[in-house]
Each structure stands twice: as C-alpha cells, then as structure tokens.
Write a protein that binds this DNA or RNA. Structure first.
Lengths: 296, 296
DNA sequence: GTTTCCGATGCATAAAAGGTATCATGAAAA
DNA sequence: TTTTCATGATACCTTTTATGCATCGGAAAC
C-alpha cells in the first residue's frame, strides 16, 4: 500500500480535531474508516503519529512534523491544480515577445504594460533580436510574437502595424550639415554612413536603400555597429552620419544633431507579427488585445 | 473521483517517456491502466495534459505547468515522509535548551557545538532564563534541558554537573580594595553590593548568602540589575561591588578589577537538568551525549 | 498489401475504501 | 459500588476504484 493525498487529508483533520469521531464527521466518513486509514498511514510510515487512549488523542513529535509537511504538500497540490487550470484557459502562462531597437524605443513598453494589466497572470518574456532573427525564431517556435521592422509579407505569418516612424538624419556636432534646419537625401550622397551589419539589418536596408536609389546614390557604409546605440556612438565619434528614427535618437547621450529629411514621404513601419496557425493561448490573447487596442 | 499521488506519479513518468507503452512498463502496469489513469486525471482537472495521436504524444502548455507543480508535490511528499521518519527515531527534531548567564559564558557553547556535530539533524533552540524560570518551564514542558545554577535536588528531575566556578569579587577601578591581591568575605562585610532581583536569582543567593553568614555578615544589596552584564555595568559605575564568576567577568568591557576570594572553598555548580520521565528523543540523545562526555 | 506500432475501449477480476454492528476500556454519573 | 456514556478498535460485508487481458481502429513502415 502507498501513501496518498487521502491519507494526508484525513490525517490533517484528525490532527486538528484530536477526536476520531468528530474528525470522521467532518470528513463525512464513518469513524472506523478513519481509524483504519490512520492505521494504514502509520503502518506505511512505520511511525506512530498519534498517542491515543480512550481519553485523549494527541500528536507525537513525528506527527507534528508530518502535519507541517503534509499541509505543505496539500497546499502545493491545490496550487498546482489551480495553476494548471489557469494555464489551460490562457489565464496564466508565458508569452515570448521579440523586439527590435525600434520597437523597444517607442510603442512596446506601453503596449506590454497595458497587456499586463489586462492579463496579469501571463508573464512576458522579452527577447531582443533583429527582424531576421525574430522571423526565424517564430518559425522555430522559439517566439510567440515578434516586433519587427515591416512590412512583413511572409506566408504563414500575420502581422499588424503598431508603430510608424519618419526617419531622420543624425550627424555629429560640428558636421558641415549640422546647422541646417533640414536636409534631403540627395544632400547625403557623398557622406560616409554608419550602420548595422547588412544581413542583420536587411529589413531596414530594404526600406532605406530604395529611397536612396531614387535620390540617385548608393549609401557608402564605412562603419558597422551591432545595434543602434553603437551606431549613434560611432556617429558622435565623427565616423560618419546615419539615418534612424526619432525615438532612437532620444536615447542618444549627446554630441549629435538630428536633421529632418524633408523629401521622405514613406514612413518606416514596425509590426507585430505572429504565426498564423497553432497560436498558444497567451499569444492568442495578445493578438486579441492588439485588435482591441485598434478599436479603442 | 479525486486526484491522488498515484495520478501524479504516472503522469510524470509519461511526461518523461511521451509513450504510453514504455511508460506503463516503467511503472510496471499495463498500458490500458495508464491510459485510463491519465484520462481520469484530465477529466478531474478538466484540462488536456497531452496532445496524443498514433504517432506522437506531447505535453500541452498546461501539461508542462502540471509537470513542474506535480514534481514539486512529489518531492515535498518524499521529504515529508523522510523527515517524519527521522523525527520518529530522534534523528531530527528540536531541542529546547535553557541557559543562565553562567552557563552561556563558559561550558555551554562548546557543549552545544559538539552535540550538533554528533546529531546534525537536531536543531537546538536556546532559551535564556534564570534557574527559577527554567525549572518552571521544565515542569510545563516548555523546555527539554535546562542549564541552571545548582545543586538541583527537586523530585522528578535528574541533573548532572557540567561546570564549576570559583566565585570572585569584582570591584570598580579605584575602589579601596582594588589594589589588593586577594580578599576574604569578611573584608566585604561593610560594602554595598550590586546584584540581581532576589526572586530570580534565588539559587545564586542560596549559594552565596550562607557563605557570607558564615563570615559573619549579611550582604547589603543596594542596586539590582536584570542580568550579569547589567550588574557589571553598575559596578563599573561605582554603585557597589559584586560577587560573580570569572567567566562572567571575561565579558566585562573595562573599568573593573577582579579579586580572588581566598576563603571560599565551595565552588558554584552549573548543572544540566531534565525531567526524569517522558523525555523526548532529542532530549534523550542529549542526556546520552552528556554521559558520553563524562566517560571520554 | 501486409505488418507493426500506437493509444483507446470492453469486460472481468483484484484491491482499496467505506459502512454497519459490535467490542473493550476507562471516565463520569447515579 | 454500579451504571452509563463516550472513545477507539475490530469483524464482516458492500461499494468503489484500479488493474489486466483481449481487442479495436488507425497510421506508418516494409
């Protein structure tokens, strides 16, 4: 015979009442059933849990130890069942969210904050990554929702625009264009550019390069940095200029001058993207939340 | 039907194997029995724990949550059973030890340290208290072992001497006797004494006062402090002199002069004392440990 | 097409848990 | 002192639960 939760439940009630008859009534069973269950429990443990006589029933030291442990086990069981149920209906769980520098600098923090208010049981696990990486992680089911540089038009994915940015040119203080109120792309044709690695930043390049080509030049990338902070750092060192968004520029520490680009009409979009099938419940809730955001 | 530990055990093995037949073999039951147990578990939880087809079995998100919680519950159960067994044979448990200033200043720390080495599962719970208090707590089963000022000759108690102290006179710097190499009790007949309250320190007074009476005087207590540190403090303030033990004097901060008492032969004893019946196992182990100390 | 492996189901059996009646014992009441 | 009452333990039987065996239906491998 093995010890089960039933033994613990019966034991705990008896440890509370210290009276077999009353305890058996509280448990809605007969007194002999309780007696036998406690006997089986003690036999299995090979430990006397109660000192009994006709006059009194009291816990032994071992009984007290078992009461504490048993209570913990029962509480743990209840909590586990509750959590499991909540996970099964999507009230609890983990949501793996990928984000780019562009997303985290602007729309994402407020979005996640509001989502957490609506679904406090869901833990958001943020994963930083460029667009290419995130799309691959979505395919590999390493990510539930990605926040990437759009537009995303891949089969098997759905997406929704959450943020649009008008790009600006950023030059170091003292640069020949630093005193201009605004610039055009053509003004930048002969400049040295600082940017991210071509593979990782492919989606941003897909947005920027066609615009430059239309303005009649191909940007000359002379320095590469891993992320936007690194890019801004290299620009402030005078290594070149760059084109990023205003929200990113807000993170810069100084030594930089932002210049509006007067001839760019197309905005850069950041989209939430997710696999169109087999969405986990937390991800489904997030998608619903995004739709709800749109309406309100 | 209710969820039991059996369900969890079966579930965990299946969650490991992800194959009903192999899991049932590991559990030494038939495959249909496992299938039905998992079905019952899912029905009771109203949660699907496994996605199953003929080709694969895999955990759902809820199943993963249940696996973590279930593992914790099982571990907790195992730990509880183990602890209960250890308590029942006295390998684990709590030992409530009372001690006086005299005991803690000398023999007790080393004694407890060695006891802990021998019985690492037993947690010693120290309770500070004067002799009178400790004896009452022993009667009320609030204490397992007392370390008190002896000799204790009370019915229902056993005791064992663990420490003997030769008392010394302690005077403030600059006192008229401070330059003496030693003093006799008679030299102190006209001094003001600092000591503890008569009720609480009764056992110490029972030792000291007969000696003074034999020397022809009754000490004049002019100040009372709660404990020996307080007494030493008042002495160093010049409120009077006192008679305590050398080990207590070692705790003094300064401004005091110890003087041997050349005419006292009787030493002050500190004894371990315990109820002679119904000893808890940890206390029994401590008593055995004390006897063993004696032999070695 | 046949075989093989998978999880699910029907049915009979074994094991566990429960209920009723009753006993032995010690304390309290008469 | 005797009687009564309440307690926990036991005996015996019933109900519930768990298990094993045989088998099904379906997908993949050969």
């Amino acid at each position: 015979m093995k010890i089960g939760l039933r033994h613990i439940r019966y034991f705990l009630v008896l440890a509370e009442d210290l009276n077999f008859r009353r305890a058996s009534e509280h448990l809605h069973i007969s007194q002999p059933a309780l007696t036998r269950t406690i006997q089986h429990l003690e036999a299995e443990l090979q430990v006397t849990l109660f000192d009994r006589s006709q006059n009194f029933v009291r816990l032994t030291d071992a009984g007290r130890a078992f009461r504490e442990g048993g209570q913990r086990v029962l509480n743990g069981m209840e909590a586990t069942i509750d959590l499991t149920r909540r996970v099964s209906i999507g009230e609890a769980g983990a949501l793996r969210v990928g984000y780019t520098d562009f997303a985290i600098a602007d729309a994402l923090p407020e979005l996640l904050k509001q989502f957490h208010q609506r679904h406090p049981g869901i833990t958001v696990r943020p994963h930083h990554g460029v667009t290419t990486t995130q799309l691959q992680e979505l395919r590999d089911d390493k990510l539930d929702i990605g926040f990437v540089t759009g537009p995303v038009r891949q089969p098997g994915f759905h997406s929704r625009v959450v943020q649009t940015d008008r790009p600006i040119c950023i030059v170091p203080e003292g640069h020949r264009l630093a005193s201009r109120a605004s610039v055009t792309l053509a003004d930048l044709a002969d400049e040295d550019f600082v940017h991210g690695p071509a593979e990782a930043w492919a989606h941003f390049y897909d947005y920027l390069f066609p615009l430059c080509r239309k303005a009649g030049f191909q940007p000359r990338i002379v320095q590469e940095a891993f992320n936007s902070v690194g890019i801004l750092g290299l620009v402030s060192c005078g290594m070149g200029i760059t084109i990023l968004t205003e929200s990113i520029y807000d993170f810069a520490t100084g030594g930089l001058v932002p210049l509006p680009l007067s001839d760019i009409a197309e905005e850069m979009v950041t989209e939430a993207v997710w696999a169109s099938e087999n969405l986990r419940l937390p991800a489904q809730h997030f998608v619903d939340f995004l739709e709800h955001q749109h309406k309100s």
